[in-house]
Amino acid sequence: MTDQSTTAESPGPAGAPPGRTKLSPRKKQQISRAVQYVVLVVVAVFLVTRIEWGSLAQNFAKSEVASQMLPDLFTVALLNTIIYSVGGFVFAFLLGLLFALMRLSSVRPYRWIAVVYIEIFRGLPAVLIFLFILFLPLALPGFEVPGGTYGQGILGLTVVGSAYMAETLRAGLQAVPKGQLEAARSLGMSYSRGMISIVIPQAVRIVIPPTTNQFVSLLKDSSLVLFLGVSGEYVELTKFGNDTASTFANATPLLVVGVTYLLVTIPLGYLASRLEKRQMKGR
């Protein structure tokens, strides 16, 4: 012990040669911090003096334009965003659960189908999926997605979300200890009864925090409904913002819409991390 403390005091053979001024670690840290503050101040001063705040405000925060957006911003656009994303989430969850169970199935072709589906739709850009849906009636004459525009938007989000959901749920199902199903089976439950009553409820609890994050991501992806060429009563936030911005030739609606997204996504993000913490405690 004493040996070590003495060697730490004296500069080792590999240290700087004596005589040259050497800064103590504390001094180095102080200088480094001072430099960081200076950089920050310089950048701030530059921005404040060089940006034309007046024209920026005229373009991005014009209150007359913003007030024109009410009440449709909430009663139509936000409502539709929520309809698309909740609908997509519910179906993505159900489809994801189906594929997760298929992925874990003892029937080999089911496993293959699930793997192929998951790999394809996890690897495709969401926009491409929406464009496919747009062209679906051309590929299948006479076919129409049930539910009209809502149906198309929800279908798109279902396809986008289900592949990720399947992988999350598979991980959740595998995180339930093997002994749980064994206990259920030893009590005379069938495999499916054991899954439904014992394993799936536990798996769903495990995946609540990650699926909350997936909902946030679906909410953002609902902006892709734009590509379906929706209009009128079917517009969601992004399309609504884009249209209003064109009408007024002003970017304020985009800022307003952005803030509206954050009003929903930030609380949900907090909720997810709180649920996660609570779960850590419970385990």
């Binding site: 206990a183 030893s186 009590l187 009864r193 009553s197 014992i198």
Partner: peptide, 28 residues
């Protein structure tokens, strides 16, 4: 055949009472 495991394997999402009731309800 009743079985008791080394690791208990109680169902963690149910109370003790529910643990003892579930298979009576669902199986019997």
């Amino acid at each position: 055949v009743g079985m008791v495991f080394q690791q208990f394997n109680l169902f963690p999402h149910m109370t003790a009472l529910q643990n003892v009731m579930i298979s009576q309800r669902r199986v019997l």
